[in-house]
Design a protein around this nucleic acid. Structure first.
Length: 597
RNA sequence: GGUCUGGUAGCUCAGUCGGAUUAGAGCAACAGCCUUCUAAGCUGUGGGUCAUGGGUUCGAGUCCCAUCCGGAUCACCA
């Protein structure tokens, strides 16, 4: 049993004895004692002063005396400062706690059982007309990390992806390829499939803008020119053919999408993300209509004179929302309803989490209400895991202006940088093969990228400076990985020494060591909080704080050889436990930790 | 304009449920530390009106209200 739980229970009993009142757990506020005071755990007694009718310090004194009587093995002494009751915990307690942490490889995780709720997480959700960029990277990393966190909190997790594989944007790429592609394929061009298609999308846009400009020069209104340009008309014709299942168009569409998927798979693999179930919009986009008709029949929605179907959400404080166009075709919202329907057929979903940018906050607010009205039990409290945009120093990323950061380029750059950096430190890594060096560079480069993105609060917009932002010093992934590698190095040399005997329990622990154990214990809370707030960033910051504290401690470690055996064992155990927790924490973020670097 | 969201050091970011006369990291600047398990590290110095004003209370960066500034969104686009 955790030390804090023991204390919490004892305090509750004492308060009842002394003041005759039962108090809830959360009224017993325990925190780490400030370094300038004696003790390790502090009870905040202010909440109890109203019951005791005594001054804060008198109340603290009173509770302290009873605590020592009640838990003599746990609390060695106490002191009261104002309303703060500082408790000194015996070394024996700390060391057995350490032992618990070290011996449990799943420390901090709640096991998943048959009764666990099923959480579905949708993330990534790319369009198939262009390669992934930095914004997608943030989405993918957050989605993956969140899936890990939810699982660590004892949920069954299904990771899903809805691929937007149809629509006018795909037709643009297809058309451009037909016109100017000369049958180019990923094989003949040597380009990754998604980049190849992306290039044709750009080509379309360029020619299209030329056409629009020409029309405007001839005196046409710009809005009209955008509608009338031959290329866009042709693209629309292609879309109509696609919807009519024209074999030729469908064949081309299929072929080009396969190229894109092959490209995406490479990027996903490099990012270390995967999915349990992929949905394609081409297969789900018609599904929503049925549900809308159902809602119409039940009177949730209404039809206007022109035939379009709307939901009136003004009573919810929102606007009216279009669900079916006047020509009967579906819109974005309808498709999401359809996808929800299919998903619920496939899985007994208890909770649905959508990892989608904050630009769609309104959309998901509406979707939640609509799904609820349509009878999805998880609709009302679906979670829109809404993350902020990634900004560049000169503003936002805009594909049209060429200010996007391509995911594949970024990954390659990070790994190359890591390799270059480690080349300077090559003296440390004598005797490793090129393959090993490459693998370490991959782990470190990706670690830097992932940590950089995940350490920031997901909700906030973040700034990404390609030149300066990613650093391998300071609060970074490599710093944490480096510490892990050093711990592994220590353990490789000393591993046999970790066999805690009875004598070790008598070791007097230094302040720093106790702080570290307390921090290790805090991992559980960090995981729990990340699950509650749907926010992986607190895990990242936890890992950093832990490693930072360990690193400071590490400098006193050199006396190890001269220390007595028992103290060595405790310290090695402490290192092992830190390594373990770091590995668990980074694992939740999808960041690998290297054995050496 | 309505709704949502953010504002903490020159820059990028933490800050748990409201807790301790002194709000933390990193980067950048300056000064130290490599015969001892990895210096991608450690130690020190300087740098703050927690946007502004009010309120709630034993106590506010944290909660409430107002104001200022930024961002998103409010399509028969996805």
């Amino acid at each position: 049993m955790k030390i804090e739980s023991k204390i919490t229970e004892a305090v509750k009993a004492i308060v009842e004895e002394l003041y005759g009142q039962q108090v809830p757990d959360k009224m017993v506020q325990l925190q780490q004692t400030r370094p300038e005071f004696e003790g390790q755990i502090t009870l905040v007694v202010f909440p109890f002063t109203k019951m005791s009718h005594k001054a804060p310090d008198a109340t603290a004194q009173e509770i302290g005396e009873r605590l020592v009587e009640k838990l003599p093995d746990v609390i060695s002494k106490f002191n009261a400062v104002k309303g703060f009751l500082n408790l000194s915990i015996s070394s024996r307690q700390w060391i057995s706690l350490l032992q618990e942490i070290e011996s449990n490889p799943k420390f901090g995780f709640v096991p998943v059982t048959d009764e666990s709720p099923l959480v579905m997480i949708e993330y990534s959700s790319p369009n198939t007309n262009k390669p992934l960029h930095l914004g997608h990277v943030r989405n993918n990393l957050l989605g993956w990390a969140l899936a890990q966190v939810m699982e660590a909190n004892g949920n069954k997790v299904v990771k899903t992806n809805i691929v937007n594989d149809r629509g006018i944007h795909i037709c643009k790429s297809m058309l451009a390829w037909l016109k100017w592609g000369n049958g180019e394929t990923p094989e003949t061009s040597g380009k990754k499939g998604d980049h190849l298609i992306g290039d044709y999308y750009v080509a379309f846009d360029k020619h299209y803008r030329d056409e629009v400009r020409e029309l405007v020069e001839k005196g046409m209104d710009e809005e009209q020119a955008k509608q009338e340009a031959p290329l866009i008309k042709e693209a629309h014709e292609m879309l109509v053919k696609w919807e009519q299942n024209d074999p030729e168009v469908r064949g081309l569409w299929k072929k080009m999408n396969e190229w894109v998927y092959a490209g995406f798979d490479e990027t996903y693999k490099a990012l270390g993300v995967s999915f349990d179930k992929i949905y394609y919009e081409s297969e789900t986009y018609l599904e929503g209509k049925e549900k809308v008709e159902e809602g119409l029949a039940k009177g949730f929605f209404y039809r206007r004179e022109d035939g379009s179907v709307w939901a009136d959400l003004t009573s919810e404080g929102l606007d009216e929302k279009l669900l079916l166009r006047s020509d009967g075709t579906s819109v974005y919202m309808t498709q999401d309803i359809g996808t929800a329907k299919l998903r619920f057929q496939d899985y007994p979903i208890d909770k649905m989490i959508y990892v989608v940018g904050n630009e769609q906050n309104y959309h998901f607010q509406v979707l939640s209400i609509l799904l609820d009205k349509l009878g999805f039990k998880w609709g009302k409290d679906l979670v829109h895991f809404s993350y902020g945009m990634v900004e560049l120093p000169n503003g936002k990323m805009k594909s049209r202006e060429g200010t996007v950061v391509d995911a594949d380029d970024l990954i390659a750059t990070m790994i190359a940088d890591a390799k270059e950096l480690s080349a300077d430190k090559v003296n440390k890594l004598e005797g490793i093969t090129d393959e090993e060096a490459q693998e370490i560079a991959r782990i470190v480069g990706m670690g830097a990228l992932k940590y950089f993105i995940l350490k920031v609060d997901a909700r906030k917009n973040m700034l990404f400076n390609p030149e300066e932002s990613i650093d391998f010093n300071g609060n970074t992934g490599p710093f944490i990985q480096y510490t892990y590698a050093r711990i592994r190095s220590i353990l490789r040399k000393w591993n046999d020494e970790i066999t805690l005997d009875e004598k070790a329990f008598e070791v007097e622990l230094a302040e720093k060591e106790i702080n570290l154990i307390q921090r290790l214990q805090g991992f559980e809370a960090a995981v729990k909080q990340a699950g509650q707030d749907y926010n992986p960033s607190c895990i990242a910051n936890y890992c950093y704080d832990l490693v930072k504290e360990y690193n400071q401690f590490y400098h006193d470690f050199s006396v190890l050889k001269e220390e007595d055996k028992a103290k060595q064992q405790v310290r090695l155990m402490l290192s092992a436990a830190v390594g373990q927790v770091v590995k668990n924490g980074m694992g939740l973020l999808g960041i690998e930790v290297p054995e050496r670097m």
